[in-house]
Amino acid sequence: SSGAIIYTVELKRYGGPLGITISGTEEPFDPIIISSLTKGGLAERTGAIHIGDRILAINSSSLKGKPLSEAIHLLQMAGETVTLKIKKQTD
């Protein structure tokens, strides 16, 4: 049976990049997913974020019904501590 787990990851960026690339579309209900991780970057080092994971919220702002451009804007405005709500498929 296919299921999913949902969890929250807190990234402290200390002025540096998060080390993630996200992808999606401008269709508001398409998923926003992690499309790549910078090798040795902040997100990869947590061990908790993987390519293909879906981002449900950024700093408690839900991405439900929001296009990719809004998600990118939220990441850019997120500040030093970025909290990502992640949904991972478990097959």
Rank of each mutant, 00 (worst) to 15 (best):
G3T: 14
G19V: 00
S2Y: 08
S2W: 10
L56F: 05
I32R: 03
G41V: 02
D30G: 13
A43G: 06
T21R: 13
S2M: 14
G65A: 11
P67F: 02
G19C: 00
A78L: 02
E27I: 13
T25E: 07
P28C: 08
I51V: 10
G65C: 08
T25G: 13
G47W: 01
E70Q: 11
L37Q: 04
G52A: 05
K64H: 13
I58T: 00
I55A: 00
P67N: 09
E44L: 04
Y14I: 14
I58S: 00
D53L: 00
G40F: 01
A78Y: 03
N59E: 03
K39W: 01
S69Q: 07
A78I: 04
M77E: 14
Q76L: 05
N59K: 00
L11P: 02
A43Y: 00
P31G: 15
I33G: 08
A78G: 12
Y14N: 15
I58K: 01
Y14A: 14
T21W: 01
T21H: 11
I33N: 06
G40I: 01
K12Y: 00
E44F: 05
S36P: 01
N59I: 02
E27P: 02
I5N: 14
G40W: 02
G41C: 11
T90P: 14
S60N: 14
G19R: 03
K66R: 13
P17H: 12
G41F: 03
S69W: 11
S2E: 11
G47M: 04
G24K: 12
V9S: 00
E80Q: 06
P17I: 04
L68V: 10
I32D: 04
S69A: 12
S36A: 09
T25H: 04
P67D: 04
E27K: 09
Y7V: 09
G15L: 13
I55K: 01
E10T: 12
I58G: 02
T46R: 03
S60A: 08
M77S: 11
G15P: 08
K64G: 11
S60E: 10
L18R: 04
A57E: 12
I5L: 12
T46I: 10
G47S: 08
S35M: 13
L11V: 12
V9P: 04
I58Y: 07
A57L: 01
S60V: 00
G3C: 11
D53K: 00
S1R: 07
K12R: 14
L63S: 09
K64S: 11
D53R: 02
R54K: 08
I22H: 00
L75S: 15
E26G: 11
I55E: 11
S35I: 10
G16W: 04
T8H: 07
S61P: 01
V82I: 09
G15M: 14
G47A: 08
Y7M: 15
P17K: 09
G65D: 07
I72V: 15
S60H: 09
L37C: 05
K64V: 08
L42C: 15
L56E: 08
N59G: 08
T8K: 01
E70P: 02
P28I: 07
D30C: 14
I58L: 02
R13F: 01
T8Y: 07
S35L: 03
R54G: 02
Y7D: 10
I55D: 02
